[in-house]
Design a protein around this nucleic acid. Structure first.
Lengths: 153, 153
DNA sequence: TATTGTTATACTCTATAACTATA
DNA sequence: TATAGTTATAGAGTATAACAATA
């Protein structure tokens, strides 16, 4: 069991710890940590289709749809027809949705600060770089995994 | 929006990407990625009570119980009486549980390698150190969060 | 033919609260 | 009084497959 093999568990531990504390903070505003991520994805950029939203979160389109239904019932997002593609629907934050997002962003600051306080500014940059490279590497196809699946048929 | 504020989302993206790919790999062996973590926690050390198990995963005792029921039905873990504390139950891997864990560990190697390949050996050490510090920092009480909760009563 | 989204469905994980038994 | 575990309950996220409408 090398240090490399402990990486997934270490990653999981910090993520889940963050996720639980985030749920506690955001729960006071009536949203979950995952719903906050959805709102943040919409707040960060332009409006987008459900598929684009799912790809950025990242999550599954049907999962995102389930989340959107909940958020729509709360009046935090709306879905309107796409201007040129009649199949697609554009998701947008409502005024209330933007307000809740901003409140949640502020409410979460102590948590983000606490996490970042464990690192130097230089380490934060290095960490961001590493996380992005890890994500790209994990998203690429992995030949050995394909081989395992194929041969097990 | 500073780089520091993007850290939680970057962490989430890499964790969820890893989690999904892990689920796909472990699913061929009949277990989920979270169940693998439970098995790994038991395989890594001595037998332990459900509470100890929950603390190490980390997870909630009632969540762990639900997972243990599923794993017990699959014959992968057993729960026996604690020798000195009649309230507690000791959780142990069965022979089949150890075998499945080992198979899953091996099946997950390409994934772990792929993730680690994005980093140099030095970066892996640095990353582990950072993740551990972040976890500790997040587990400590956060005064500002307490204050928010208190004042909102 | 491929793509967007919906629907139905099912399962795992999550967590709170009330409870029993024991320390 | 505090702790270990169970039970009941509820909800959120997850994802697959079949489907309709449209590109």
């Amino acid at each position: 069991m090398t240090e490399k093999d402990q990486l997934p568990l270490a990653l999981r531990t910090v993520y889940l710890t963050l996720h639980r504390r985030s749920d506690a903070v955001f729960g006071e505003l009536g949203i979950t940590a995952d719903q906050f991520v959805l709102l943040a994805t919409l707040a960060g950029g332009q409006a987008m289709t459900q598929r684009e939203l799912a790809a950025r979160m990242p999550s599954d389109p049907s999962t995102v749809r389930a989340m959107l239904v909940l958020l729509e019932n709360q009046g935090l997002v709306t879905r309107v027809a796409h201007p040129t593609d009649a199949r697609a629907r554009i998701v947008r934050l409502t005024k209330a949705g933007l307000r809740v997002y901003q409140q949640a962003f502020n409410a979460g600051r102590p948590l983000r600060d606490k996490m970042a306080d464990a690192l130097s500014p230089r380490e934060i940059r290095q960490l961001m770089s590493m996380l992005q490279r890890m994500t790209e590497s994990l998203q690429a196809p992995i030949p050995e995994l394909v081989a395992v699946s194929e041969t097990s048929r």
